[in-house]
Design a binder for these strands. Structure first.
Lengths: 210, 210, 210, 210
DNA sequence: AATGAATGAGTTTTCATTCAT
DNA sequence: TATGAATGAAAACTCATTCAT
């Protein structure tokens, strides 16, 4: 039995691995830091034996990285689904922010994604490697926001002079900013509702025709 | 002697504590993940006894959190200094990005800051707590970018209708975006120079009068 | 079905058991230490299921001990065969050493035999027990060297005053010495060819009429 | 603090390391196989903390190998001491065998030495490496038996035509044979007293002038 | 009879923290 | 005050053995 790579299609994932992913997701969702989640905690939560997990993964790092990738893929799919049937870029942005507001676990995930891709932890090189190994990583942002951006350009909401990559980062960055506002509202006395409006206005202003 | 809180003014910090802060800074600057820096590594690098550090700090978490706070305060001061004597907002933004480009340790620090303030690690609640406990946290972003923004508004580069907090987050977020581009350029084939230009153009466009 | 004892005659050994013995033999021949050969490694090499082996053996220890016994019996038989048709004791000794020189796996086996019979491992008591349980053990050295010694005595090459057991040990000991020379030549700068000659001369001298 | 190499002179060995060596010696002396002695068992027996041992050694393998080397060096010294003031080669051989008969732990050690130097375990390469690294290994047999052999040659008990190395191996091998007799007496119904006489007679006969 | 996924006890190893000096 | 040797709790990981299929 080959080890899990984190890139297999959902129907090919063994049930114990799905339980593992679910356990990691839960624990992270409960606010536990990735570095403080032990293998025992994962297997206990997943309801499987401690040894079983090593039949599927090579190490704790692989477990975390794969669970993380799975979550990102899942989320991407869900979002793509949601965006279907939406007309304008503005509407889409609002929908995106609604999503983030609604699901607190969603927010956690988003912040984790940025961390996972940018920090120096043991997981980040594995995650980056896995993203590079496959189409998933390269296509992920495109898949998530690509359609959205294309419509925006067609409708004239987005300047057609801007390269798609830049728009991607710009949108991503606004989402990130909103997450930051929410995360730090306690420390910095932020009115998140007002912020949300300003951020959305900002992205629309930044991207529209000069 | 009371333990170190991380909030004392620089002249009140004992020399061994300064050595500790310096050691943590070095180790993080060398690309080591905070979770993988042991107390031994810190004391060895600082050139002090392993037991000594517990005369000043209660736990490893406190060490990291305080060292982190110290670094942030130091960086804020240094940046404020640099910005002095600069005329336009545009010039300031360019200077800020130059700083980040020049000093790789600076970049690491910046990314760490966001992580430290937004993740679920053992350190973040301590850091957030310390930020709340004092004026430092509340004043920090204001101190860093406040003057910059004020000038921008005076010169008309920034719309006076925007609340200062929003502009703060917007600038911060652009810096973060640039850091992300650099961190992920390998994975996503990004032309960082072009990105820099677009990001700076974006922030100016987003903030200017409607 | 009763479990395997390691003492059944070759034609009564089930094919899966023979595959098991072959696998252990191979792995030891490849230089792996007995203590580091896992049950998985054995079953994988044997091409049988990991559970299947427990239909035949009670434990890992039994597997190793029985495989070992089988190897010893096989080797004894092969040697007896080789010795047939040789005239003098001197010639036989040379042939014996030639065998050891030719087959590196043979050497490994020989060293293992001494270890297996003299160490304190989990296997040795089982092996000793099995040897005692049957005629095989008691007859083994006699079978191997008995004929050789008898001829030596008839031809006058071996003093008839010496008890057969002693001669057995003496011959065995010389073989052991030669193995030691080979094993330690690197550490102690030994000329193994010269040693071989001296050892053979030594045994002949030691055993001949006073 | 540098890690233990197993080659430091006795007075330079820290007390905790001596306790460790003592514990390993005891456990082996009690008949436990080296592969079945856990680090916990050693530290418990030594009366030190489980973590402490890793301040001195890098791994379990190093612990075993160093403890083993220490034992060999100790034994060699003790034997050299005993041999001082003995006149003839014959007398020395008897004394050597008396020693082995007297101390059951001594016997265990001797058998272990041969195993340690000739098997494929994780320890043997480390032990061989350490022996090669220093004068100790190369000088060990010479130190043990060298003086003995020199006297034998002077008194005419040993043929001066034989190279010293060969005599070394021959004596060593006889000791080994005796150990084997004792270890296997149960399995093979051996009269060890008679064997001892024959072995001693054999070595004298083998080595004397032609 | 044969399988191999699943298990968990047991192993080695690390490291934050203590405390005698 | 400063030290670093000593600790042991807890972590990652292995593998002989079981048992549902």
């Amino acid at each position: 039995m080959g080890k899990i790579t984190g890139l297999e299609s959902v129907e090919d994932i063994p049930s114990k691995v799905l339980l593992t992913y679910g356990a990691v997701q839960e624990l992270v969702g409960e606010g536990r830091d990735i570095n403080d989640i032990s293998v025992s905690a994962i297997t206990e939560r997943a309801g499987i034996g401690k040894g079983t997990i090593y039949d599927y993964f090579d190490s704790r790092e692989e477990i975390i990285a794969c669970a993380f990738l799975f979550y990102v893929r899942q989320t991407a799919e869900r979002m793509t689904e949601t965006m279907r049937g939406v007309a304008s870029f503005q509407e889409e942005i609002h929908l995106l922010f609604d999503q983030l507001d609604g699901d607190s676990e969603q927010k956690t995930c988003f912040v984790r994604f940025v961390h996972g891709a940018t920090d120096n932890s043991k997981y980040s090189p594995i995650i980056r490697e896995k993203l590079r190994e496959t189409e998933i990583g390269r296509k992920l942002p495109e898949q998530l926001f690509g359609e959205m951006i294309r419509r925006g350009m067609e409708s004239g909401e987005i300047s057609s002079e801007l390269p798609v990559e830049y728009v991607l980062y710009a949108v991503f960055c606004k989402v990130m900013t909103y997450m930051m506002c929410i995360a730090t509202q306690e420390s910095f006395d932020i009115d998140t509702k007002r912020m949300r409006e300003l951020i959305i206005a900002g992205i629309l202003k930044e991207l529209k025709q000069a």
